[in-house]
Computed example of a mutant assay.
Amino acid sequence: MSLLKIESISKSFGGVKAVNNVSFDLPRGQLLALLGPNGAGKSTCFNMLNGQLKPDTGSIKLEDIELVGMHPRQIWSEGVGRTFQISATFGSLTVLENMQMVLLSKYKKLFSWWKPAAGYYKQQALDLLEQVGMADQANRACNELAYGDVKRVELAMALAHEPKLLLMDEPTAGMAPKERNLLVALVKKMVIERNLSVLFTEHSMDVVFEHADRMIVFARGELIADGGAEEIRSDSKVRKVYFGSGKSFEVA
């Protein structure tokens, strides 16, 4: 049974169909890449999945729960996490404090003058940081970290809520090739260990073909291909979208 099932979703802005009658599913424990050139409809699709946009038509189900019409906070509470292309940590707070803030939100805990926030969930926060290789930097401010390490912290923050589904929008944007592969390899490890489902957008084809279990490709708002690495490499529609011809799909 699929964890996420998308059926015939569409979204238009004026006369432009940003997403047009798209359907796909995502099983548990799969790393699914959403590919396509700029303007293909990837971000619009993402924003419908987590409630920032409402589809004009169609259904988005997490297990048996219909997500269409829910606010982002409600969708988050059902087990859908998200990371963003632009880093979303509190730069002046330490890595550990960022984690504690997320856990305070998860448990709906209000701190008081008698017990400040620093006293809550410290060990749980450290355990999550250990999973992403950041426990040794727990007391550093986030604005002192290398960019790749900030992305690791963001991953730990997303995992703190114990999501069933994680949406990752351009998780490796701005990162060097080695950092890109290390981060997505870490995500793949989480997919396996937690039986987590991950949908991510990505422009770095080396990362996608190295780590994704499956790929779907958008073009002009429509889903044009769905399959594994070899199927996508050989798909004539995909080659035409990326190269404008039948040129073979190579990864640098």
Score class of each variant (00 low, 15 high):
Q123F: 10
F111H: 15
L129A: 11
A135S: 14
K115P: 01
K151G: 01
A118T: 13
A135C: 08
A125L: 05
C142G: 04
L126V: 09
D149V: 04
A125H: 05
M134R: 08
M134G: 01
W113T: 09
P116C: 13
W113Q: 12
M134C: 00
P116N: 13
F111G: 09
L145M: 11
Y120L: 04
A118I: 04
V153G: 01
D136V: 08
W113V: 13
A118C: 05
Y147S: 07
F111D: 14
K122Q: 13
L128I: 03
A141W: 02
D149M: 03
K122M: 03
E144C: 11
R140W: 05
K122I: 04
D136A: 15
C142F: 05
F111C: 10
A117R: 10
Y120M: 08
L145A: 07
A141L: 03
D149C: 03
W114F: 14
N139D: 09
G119Y: 07
L110R: 14
L145Q: 06
Q131M: 14
E144V: 03
A138N: 01
Q137T: 09
Q137S: 12
L110W: 12
K151I: 00
Q137I: 06
E154N: 03
A135M: 08
R152M: 03
L110F: 08
R152E: 00
Y147M: 06
W114I: 10
S112C: 06
A138Y: 03
D127M: 13
E154K: 01
E130G: 15
Q137F: 13
K122T: 11
R152F: 05
F111P: 15
Y147D: 05
K115R: 11
K115Y: 01
L110T: 09
A146K: 10
C142A: 15
V150G: 07
K115I: 06
L145G: 13
G148L: 07
Y147H: 07
Q131C: 09
L110D: 11
D136Q: 14
E130Y: 12
D127E: 15
E144P: 10
Q137H: 11
W113S: 12
M134N: 02
A138T: 01
A125G: 08
Y147W: 10
D136Y: 09
V150P: 08
G133E: 00
V132P: 00
D127T: 13
A117D: 11
Y120R: 05
K115T: 07
A141R: 13
W114C: 08
G148R: 00
R152P: 02
Q131A: 15
W113M: 14
Y120A: 05
A146I: 00
Q124W: 07
V150Q: 01
L145H: 05
A135Q: 12
N143I: 02
M134L: 06
R140M: 13
M134A: 04
E154W: 00
W114P: 04
R152I: 02
D149L: 07
Y121F: 15
A138W: 00
N143D: 13
L126C: 07
V153P: 02
V132I: 11
L129D: 06
A118E: 15
M134K: 00
Q123C: 07
D127Q: 13
Y120F: 15
D149T: 06
E154S: 02
Y147A: 04
Y121W: 06
D149P: 04
G119C: 12
D149I: 05
Y120K: 04
L145K: 10
W113C: 07
V153R: 00
K122P: 06
Y121P: 06
A141G: 10
